[in-house]
Computed example of a mutant assay.
Amino acid sequence: MGRVLLVTGISRDIGRRFARAAASDPSIDRVIGVDVVPPRGDIGDVSFVRADIRNPVIAKVIAKEDVDTVVHMSVIATPGSAGGRGTMKELNVIGTMQLLAACQKAASVERLVVKSTTTVYGASPRDPAMFTEDMGAKRLPSSGYAKDVHEIEGYVRGFARRRPDVAVTTLRAANVIGAHVSSPITSYFRLPVIPTVLGYDPRLQFLHEDDLLDVLRHAAVQGVPGTFNVAGDGVLLLSQAVRRLGRPSVPMPAFAVGRLATTLRHAGVSEFSREQTGFLTYGRGVDTTRMRTILGFEPRHTTAGAFAEFARSLHGVVPEPAFAGVDPRPQAPRPKGSSSKGAEHV
């Protein structure tokens, strides 16, 4: 008998696409998508239930549908998309707390997959070359998306202790990039002129949108418990990324980038945040050894390959010199146990 999945955040494109992909998996019997508004676009064989995870009614949905696997994707990175910072925090933190409470009561739940982010590590001049999963941020976040994710992961760990019979998988995804992705980092790279922080050239890692869908499905089906960094192999410097876009850049002092970010945010052009400005200053690197050796997942795209496809989607056709030396094709699996150093995320 196949699994019964409940997917939160199905109104957003990535949640809808994952739910539809999961519904086509022969090892999955049914997929129930939950959100406060209906998804836009075809959801195939997915059953949509209009429900707010901030409300205890989510427990009734889980019990009625006899859900055994929950994939939590309803964590919002931009306050503008939620109607303000207060609503964003409520959706992220309170929503997660209610969902976990519902899962704790449901005897049918056997697996929980949480889409998290490497933003939880922060970005500072004291960071290690590579963050492993047992490391924490050198400077705890005090506000915004990073603070929400830090709190969410704490609640998830508490749930795992209370329900040791449930396989809990937390996926710390690098910045997801692709033609269909709308996020702070893709909005940044879509600007006609790219502002950079004067004197800094941060390392970037990306995860292709298709690899995100694949790793979520892999985690839901395989049920491997633990916390895993997920990123495409390799790194790009910001200067390399900008050159490969073929767009001009303007180096600015950090305070000026911060002011510009505020202006763009108020104008509705880009959801620049304080943590993104820090990231574009110091960058971030994560080790993905556990992803390969324990989770058993290998992304099809490298960091450079994922960015190449994203850039092609912006330009239609990218001049060859812009991608000299970059192979955007899926990469062959690396031998088990090989090091992932040099492959990171944003």
Rank of each mutant, 00 (worst) to 15 (best):
Q205D: 03
L207Q: 03
L207V: 03
L213M: 09
L216R: 07
L216P: 04
L216G: 05
G223A: 06
G226I: 03
G226M: 07
G226E: 06
T227F: 01
F228P: 10
F228I: 05
V230D: 13
V230P: 08
L237N: 12
L238E: 09
L238F: 12
L238W: 10
S239T: 07
S239F: 09
Q240W: 10
A241C: 14
R243V: 08
R243I: 02
R243D: 14
R244Y: 10
R244Q: 15
G246H: 14
R247Y: 12
R247G: 12
R247K: 15
V250H: 14
M252E: 10
P253Q: 06
A254G: 10
A256S: 13
V257A: 11
A261H: 01
A261M: 00
A261Q: 01
T262M: 07
T263I: 11
L264E: 02
L264V: 01
R265K: 12
H266Q: 08
A267Q: 07
A267E: 02
F272W: 04
E275C: 01
T277H: 11
G278P: 00
F279A: 05
L280C: 03
T281F: 02
Y282P: 01
G283Q: 04
G285I: 01
T288Y: 08
T289E: 09
R290T: 03
R290W: 06
R292F: 01
R292E: 06
R292L: 03
T293M: 09
I294Y: 11
L295G: 10
G296M: 09
F297C: 06
E298P: 03
P299H: 11
R300N: 08
R300L: 11
H301G: 00
T302K: 09
T303R: 07
G305S: 08
A306R: 08
